[in-house]
Design a protein around this nucleic acid. Structure first.
Length: 304
DNA sequence: CGAATTTGACCGGCGC
DNA sequence: GCGCCGGTCAAATTCG
């Protein structure tokens, strides 16, 4: 989580200024100067974007800090309160944040007087489930509800729910009954190309096929965050370009299979994404080609 | 032929 | 009490 926030440390800017000054050759034909100008403009834009990214990261850090403070405060006040019994609500209908939050409360509180709450907590302790939600980006045309997260799952049901036209698939861990983790997979209402996987419980065994999940051709990228965030990220990129966003909703207490991705891997992925999106940009390739030819041209001139 | 998936039936919680 | 809805079961079907 915080590891993402440190993405501000990742230098996302590409050194496009290479050779720009040296490219000012004696003759400097009008085409070259135009390209150099374009290159300058692009590097300025790149610099501006880098600054914006840094600013965004700073803002994120501040917001994150405030969220943590708010969480702590809420935990404190809820423990003090002798709140009236609330109507039971299905945990699956809660969003990721509140579910994780409720889980946190049930773990930490032990001094409640209210009989109902005690009973409820006992129930929750018995269930002892940690709920986390992960968003995966897929091809929009891909109709399967299969999420390759490294674990093996057995599908035991599928249902069309009221709030979402796309069906919801129910999975149990293949190691069941020894591992009682469950997973629900459904397409996001907002963006059909985003799969929402809700994990209930924690695996009591290691990931059986980490390599498979990494090398799979049908590579799913955990998006995290909200569907809107994921959808927005999807809109801003090509369909094939994988997108990774920061999961703002997931509590540190909640562990999901995808949250185990260590930072260097994320960093590598980011670099790959940037590289692929840049190489797909015709403007960038044109500018790069111009820079290279310019450099070659300069070398030829100096040799003479 | 066994394992995995599909799909309709069933069950329990919740709101009215 | 009844109906709705999400979740689960298990027989039928498909797949390797």
């Amino acid at each position: 989580m915080d590891q993402y926030s440190s993405s501000s440390l990742v230098d996302t800017s590409l050194d496009l200024t290479i050779g720009v000054t040296r490219m000012r050759v004696e003759e400097d034909p009008p085409q070259t100067s135009a390209l150099v100008e374009e290159l300058n403009r692009v590097s300025a834009e790149n610099k501006k974007l880098s600054e914006m990214l840094t600013l965004m990261c700073d803002n994120y850090n501040v917001l994150r800090k405030q969220l943590v403070e708010y969480e702590n405060k809420s935990n404190m006040t809820e423990r003090d309160q002798t709140s009236p019994p609330k109507k039971r609500k299905s945990p699956t209908r809660d969003d990721a944040f509140s579910s994780a939050f409720i889980g946190g409360v049930s773990e930490s509180s032990s001094t409640d007087q209210d009989e109902y709450l005690c009973k409820k907590q006992r129930e929750e302790t018995v269930v002892k489930e940690k709920v986390s939600r992960v968003y995966y980006k897929t091809e929009a045309s891909d109709t399967t509800l299969v999420v390759k997260d490294g674990y093996q799952w057995r599908k035991y049901g599928q249902k069309v729910t009221r709030d979402n036209p796309s069906p919801r698939a129910y999975f149990k861990c293949a190691c069941a009954p020894s591992c009682s983790v469950k997973k629900k997979v459904q397409r996001s209402v907002e963006d059909q190309s985003v799969l929402v996987a809700t994990y209930e419980g924690e695996h009591n065994h290691p990931m059986p096929s980490q390599i498979e999940s990494n090398n799979s051709l049908n590579r799913y990228i955990p998006l995290g965050g909200s569907p809107t965030e994921a959808a927005a990220a999807n809109r801003s990129s090509s369909l094939t370009a994988p997108v990774t966003t920061v999961d703002l909703t997931e509590s540190k207490k909640v562990t999901s299979p995808t949250s185990r991705i260590d930072f260097p891997e994320v960093q590598k992925l980011l670099v790959e994404q940037m590289a692929s999106s840049l190489t797909k940009d015709p403007n960038f390739t044109a500018a790069l080609a111009a820079a290279v030819t310019g450099r070659l041209y300069q070398q030829n001139q100096t040799k003479k």
